[in-house]
Nucleic acid binder design. Structure first.
Lengths: 338, 338
DNA sequence: ATGAAAGCGCTAACAT
DNA sequence: ATGTTAGCGCTTTCAT
């Protein structure tokens, strides 16, 4: 039933070493022997055992995908898409990807992810913000790390990032072009590199357009960028400043929350107030009106991270590169002229 | 992290065999020795190598998760959730899950999924409808198969299914209770067991209520249950029958499409026409009005499938069992009195 | 109750 | 150009 390298060797009338070398297309093996071996392999329907290979090569052929559980369970399928991207790309690199989530409250006592404990991965792709303590621990074991959509404080790893500053500018400029002057910004967890950068893009574009940046247009106190927080931030902003004609939310979740608040308060979107988000999650199209946003190519982010990982694994001397994945404006119906 | 069973044996002052037995909590090992070994394990931060274990045990510790690529890429994160469920449950069973998609147009020439070719899995969970030809091929290799949300024609495998008939009844009865008599059904791919069963539930409930089942209330011709097809089906139905006061769509995607058509045509939901879906995808809450639907516990479906798989692998349970996972009515705002 | 030793299937020196 | 052989880290008889 299950043939081994020994069976192949016997059938081909050579040694197992020859079979092994022939399989790896080693130049020391003559073309004729290779053919003989190949014939035996076909006849026996042989396929090398991964376990045995792994044991001797000390490789696993697996890449770990790590993120916090709240990221994976959140309503918007953002990181799920990134995961899919790594998965698709892994196929071509002959890898499998293993998933593990960790709590956001990771502390000293918590164990390392299962796939590092039992040595089941050759490298780890870390998606989104994870506890720095975990990164510290991970950096001590000798596994290649690639970050996607997050910049760890100890910045010495390859990074695959959204071009957030540019995206923030795109969103803001879109609003400016529509004639808006009082453009609010809704952020959450401003220490998060992505949100920080989107905010930078906002400020840069306003400055470039000669528009003064006012404090009461900006909401940065929400602890994380979720719908309810977007709702709350919009309320606080609108309560304090009736001149606002447009809102740029740091992500779609907050934009959706803001839209709910505006509707609840009787504002018409975009006639009274325009709203633009960031991410382009799938729910955007279902909203009424559909949300104008900055599209983040999520699958592409994952694929890119996997490509970098494969590169790192193949040439151990790769410099920690930083890849900025471009974004684009998707204009739908939630933004209009001032 | 680099310590092996040898290091542990040395540190504990015993043989590697003893360490191995102690790890597996074998009764032949004295409690005291076990403690000594455990201490050494902790101090060395030892964790057994999966590759080595796999080699001797002839197991991989991996479960394959198979579905068609269109299922995985569709907008509603339905199968993604099921996948997550298998993943969560796999943790406790000490398994990893490997993902593979196949085309819907799978034919004789196509290769088997990668994880079966290189023998990387101990069993396969098959989610949703997959080509029967593939199932045939898979059934010939000697791997345990578990189906979730699909009934293969060669019905000899463990099945984890949604209680679709009951769900169809729940939805229909809800509408009947609201006083509706002209209740339309929108289906797609009626040969799909799930959709077929939901339709059965619809007919059963109507019969039970003494309501005649009329052809011009039923749309079954759409080839698959997606949004656009829901839109088209609703249009055809409403064009032919102005008496319709409620629509039961076989899934949320079609319900969303139907709602779009109704809105485009100036119908008010639920004042003019009620709409109920099936699945409870995350978009439902964002719709205006939010969609009344039958909730399918997606994560639970996946977890259950993995539990069955683990059972099968442990030989605890050889009989091909069939598990019906219950559903519930989630009443939101898209259904009202007739 | 514990240890010695024989593999599991494969790769890669080292021989020939 | 090909064969011999020593492990990789672990489980599992079989001895002691």
């Amino acid at each position: 039933m299950k043939s081994t390298i020994k069976d192949v060797a016997q059938k081909a009338g050579v040694s197992i070493a020859t079979v092994s070398l022939a399989i790896h297309d080693h130049k020391r093996i003559s073309p004729e022997t290779k053919r003989k071996v190949q014939k035996a392999i076909n006849e026996l329907n042989y396929s090398p055992s991964k376990s045995a290979r792994n044991l001797v090569s000390k490789k696993t052929g697996n890449i770990g995908f790590l993120l916090t559980d709240d990221h994976f369970l959140r309503t918007e399928p953002f990181y799920t898409r990134i995961f899919l991207g790594t998965e698709f790309e892994a196929r071509t690199g002959e890898y499998y990807v293993l998933l593990n989530t960790v709590g956001t409250d990771y502390d000293e006592c918590d164990k390392l992810p299962r796939f590092v404990l039992d040595k089941s991965v050759d490298g780890i792709i870390i998606a989104g913000k994870v506890p720095e303590l975990l990164i510290d621990k991970l950096s001590r074991i000798n596994l290649p790390l690639v970050f996607v959509d997050y910049i760890p404080s100890k910045n010495k790893y390859p990074l695959v990032l959204i071009d957030n500053i540019h995206g923030g500018s795109l969103a803001t400029e879109h609003l400016i072009e529509k004639g808006h002057k009082n453009i609010a910004f809704i952020g959450g967890d401003i220490n998060h590199p992505s949100i920080h950068d989107r905010f930078q893009g906002y400020k840069l574009s306003l400055e470039k357009a000669g528009i003064t940046i006012t404090d009461n247009l900006i909401s940065l106190e929400e602890p994380y960028p979720a719908r309810q927080n977007g709702y709350d931030a919009a309320r606080r902003l609108i309560d304090n400043n009736k001149d606002i004609t447009a809102i740029f939310a740091c992500n779609d979740a907050m934009a959706i929350g803001a839209m709910h608040f505006l509707k609840d308060s009787g504002y018409k979107i975009p006639q009274d107030i325009s709203v633009i988000g960031f991410d382009d999650v799938e729910a955007d199209l279902l909203l009424d009106p559909p949300l104008t946003t900055i599209r983040v190519p999520k699958v592409e982010l994952g694929a890119e991270a996997m490509r970098v990982m494969v590169d790192v694994l193949n040439n151990d001397n790769i410099a920690a590169k930083k890849i900025l994945v471009p974004v684009e404006l998707i204009e739908r119906k939630s933004t209009g002229t001032a």
